[in-house]
Simulated assay, not measured.
Amino acid sequence: MTMTPTRRSLLIAGGAGAAAAALGLTRPAAAATWETVIDGSLASYPTLEAAWNHRYPWGSDHNGSARMYGSASDRNHVYLASPGVLTIKATRITWDEGNSSADPHLPIRYHSGAVHAKQHVLVNDQFPNWEVKGEFQAPSARGTWPAFWLTGADSWPPESDILEYKGDARNWFNTYRNASGGWSSTIVNVSNPGAWHGYRAWITKVNATDVDIHYYLDGSWVGRHRGANFVGHPMWIIINLQMEGSSGSPGPTTDTYYRARNLYVGRSRV
């Protein structure tokens, strides 16, 4: 189900109660307004640098065998191949660069890239609804681990994975933690992940501590997860191309590309 701007406005304004109930969405007060947080950030390098920081929020290493590079002066691994299209390139290295500083401390075999939004997603009474979405061409070969995800800025959990491929043509929509204290996962087979597909999360506050996250692929609703203790915890928005790790090994020996366009983040304000 595609959330068109008109449909979204009706939900925010309180004019689609039956539809909201069917989706499990909580309507904010009638006075709520919808506002855009990120849109058009890939139009140029100045707009990219204004909205996004390079690498992970915590640095260059994470849970795979790729070390993240890229900056305003280094366009080798994170760049705009054309206006509106962000490209992340992972390159195999042939020298010993030690191990990742992050668990499980895999040997570094690739140089790749990541960006994270300067704006956090923060669900609370003032901002009870958020929409995070984009279109991506994602690699899915063994050893490739692209992601578009949210993770706690001051704690972990929470985490929401909107796009995650782990070495095959299945996307993992994941939420941690759920109401039972574990992971919720909706795993969807995707025809040709390397073509452009739309990935979307609609996040809505359902009580003082929890949210519901509705996940969409190409405009079609694929599942709803309850996220426990998400309310009040700011989350980073991250786009990265990790390698090996959970996606298997050995990874590719040639360059791997991961592309994004039409990135959008919006929220309701009460």
Score class of each variant (00 low, 15 high):
residue 52 W to D: 02
residue 90 A to P: 06
residue 167 G to S: 05
residue 67 R to P: 00
residue 135 E to M: 13
residue 2 T to F: 11
residue 97 E to Q: 15
residue 118 K to Q: 09
residue 248 G to H: 05
residue 13 A to V: 01
residue 171 N to G: 05
residue 212 D to Y: 13
residue 35 E to C: 02
residue 68 M to D: 04
residue 149 W to K: 08
residue 12 I to E: 02
residue 112 S to K: 02
residue 26 T to M: 11
residue 175 T to S: 14
residue 91 T to L: 08
residue 257 Y to Q: 10
residue 225 H to R: 11
residue 102 A to V: 15
residue 19 A to F: 15
residue 147 A to I: 07
residue 257 Y to D: 06
residue 91 T to S: 15
residue 93 I to A: 04
residue 171 N to R: 03
residue 169 A to W: 04
residue 225 H to N: 14
residue 118 K to Y: 07
residue 34 W to I: 03
residue 133 K to D: 09
residue 204 T to K: 09
residue 151 T to A: 13
residue 48 L to R: 05
residue 130 W to I: 07
residue 252 P to C: 08
residue 71 S to G: 13
residue 24 G to Q: 07
residue 70 G to V: 06
residue 98 G to F: 09
residue 127 F to D: 14
residue 236 W to S: 07
residue 162 I to H: 01
residue 172 W to T: 11
residue 113 G to V: 01
residue 180 S to F: 06
residue 8 R to I: 14
residue 259 R to T: 04
residue 247 S to Y: 01
residue 155 S to Y: 05
residue 269 R to D: 08
residue 10 L to S: 06
residue 18 A to H: 10
residue 226 R to M: 12
residue 103 D to Y: 15
residue 11 L to A: 09
residue 136 F to L: 11
residue 123 V to L: 07
residue 174 N to M: 14
residue 117 A to E: 02
residue 245 G to Y: 01
residue 162 I to F: 02
residue 63 N to I: 13
residue 185 S to N: 13
residue 218 D to C: 04
residue 61 D to M: 04
residue 157 P to N: 12
residue 11 L to D: 03
residue 198 G to E: 15
residue 255 D to Y: 07
residue 43 A to K: 13
residue 218 D to V: 06
residue 39 D to L: 11
residue 238 I to N: 05
residue 68 M to C: 08
residue 105 H to R: 12
residue 59 G to W: 05
residue 235 M to T: 07
residue 159 E to H: 10
residue 120 H to P: 10
residue 225 H to M: 11
residue 251 G to N: 02
residue 253 T to S: 15
residue 268 S to W: 00
residue 171 N to K: 03
residue 253 T to L: 14
residue 160 S to G: 12
residue 85 V to M: 04
residue 94 T to Y: 14
residue 31 A to Q: 14
residue 16 A to G: 01
residue 46 P to H: 01
residue 92 R to K: 15
residue 124 N to Q: 06
residue 185 S to H: 12
residue 49 E to K: 07
residue 105 H to E: 08
residue 204 T to L: 10
residue 36 T to R: 04
residue 257 Y to W: 12
residue 31 A to L: 11
residue 207 N to S: 08
residue 167 G to T: 00
residue 37 V to Y: 03
residue 65 S to P: 06
residue 166 K to I: 12
residue 86 L to Q: 05
residue 225 H to D: 13
residue 16 A to P: 01
residue 58 W to R: 07
residue 227 G to Q: 04
residue 248 G to N: 06
residue 217 L to H: 10
